[in-house]
Write a protein that binds this DNA or RNA. Sequence first.
DNA 1: GACTGTGAAGCCATTCACAGCT
DNA 2: AGCTGTGAATGGCTTCACAGTC
Lengths: 211, 211
Amino acid sequence: MKALKIPEATIVRLSVYSRFLEQVDKKGIVTISSGEIAEGVGVSPAQVRKDLAYFGEFGTRGVGYNVKDLLRHTLKILGLNARWPAVVVGAGNLGSALVSYRGFRERGFDIVGVFDNDLTKIGKRLMELEVMATEKIEQIVKQHNVKIGILTVPASSAKDAANLLINAGVKAILNFAPIVLSVPADVEVRDIDLSTRLEILTFHLCLKEMM
Amino acid sequence: MKALKIPEATIVRLSVYSRFLEQVDKKGIVTISSGEIAEGVGVSPAQVRKDLAYFGEFGTRGVGYNVKDLLRHTLKILGLNARWPAVVVGAGNLGSALVSYRGFRERGFDIVGVFDNDLTKIGKRLMELEVMATEKIEQIVKQHNVKIGILTVPASSAKDAANLLINAGVKAILNFAPIVLSVPADVEVRDIDLSTRLEILTFHLCLKEMM
DNA sequence: GACTGTGAAGCCATTCACAGCT
DNA sequence: AGCTGTGAATGGCTTCACAGTC
């Protein structure tokens, strides 16, 4: 595994390949070609090969890739050979939905704490968890060695909530608040801005309107 | 406005600039430079100018941009000078959360229908809406002239749900299901894959671990 | 013959650097 | 003097095309 800089787009696709391979494996298929993967996930065969080649030589020339093997490798690369505890800060509608989101559990993520500083929400049960005050973040994060925090608080409290997570030892934040978080260099942040995603769509709808 | 091909990243940033300008405007600030916008949203000043230049000359050399003016322009470009009705298909946790998500309303999106084909969910009230059977999609989409559909169903039903939306006349889909939708060329799809976003984080956590 | 792995080419987005206004 | 708008340069990702392997 060379220490090259990997494009973020490659990581995103790796996640997609990995999930596609799970499906393929379930069907009992043993071998798959880059072309078949490409077909299945909507990219080019060369792209698939290039993406995988960043991490090693997983295929056999003239044959293709062993599905189980490649699946195991992609999961390993993404760090999904272990389970990841995570916490959610913000127990509003979105935060609550994420606590019970199946997709996370299926891919190895376990929500081990939900926090809010709204007194009307504290104590509420969500799945097997109880919403806790944000003062408890540090305790839970240390107890479960949590590295991942999911931020679903309003923009106005996002900065404070992020700091609580970072001070507790969280090293990666998935941020749903529509603001730019500034964090130390050793903390990874990725934003999911739901409105922005819709606005990409309205932009294109308008473009087409004009033609 | 030249008919150039605009990078998708530019549209994403435009949405961010636009929201930042709303904040700035609220503070009563009249004029702003590309450098100040850049600072506020975490990109380079040249990037800000280049992005805006795709759509016209909104600034004044030696001075900067008029905040209200630029805000109006960015909203217009994104199509946010009008409100957009939208429907949600999938009334699970995520779908329910999105129906009541404030951020959408604030940016001009109105959810006018929620659908599911799970009988235990049909009839349930979410905000001022009542969950309807998916057979009602066509009626509601046509009635409100809905162009945008939000898909929050499981992967297994996503293809069918997408087809219902498309047949009803929807032209843009925000897809939360972790599968690749194949749609006609006149339909825009953007995916939000929540697990993938977390997996980008675990990938980076693992990388750092190794150093 | 089929398919992977990869250097080279091509393409697209970002950054630079400066001319053009105010 | 200050800041925008933009052609040119850079950097990075994707596609191409083919050598290498089964």
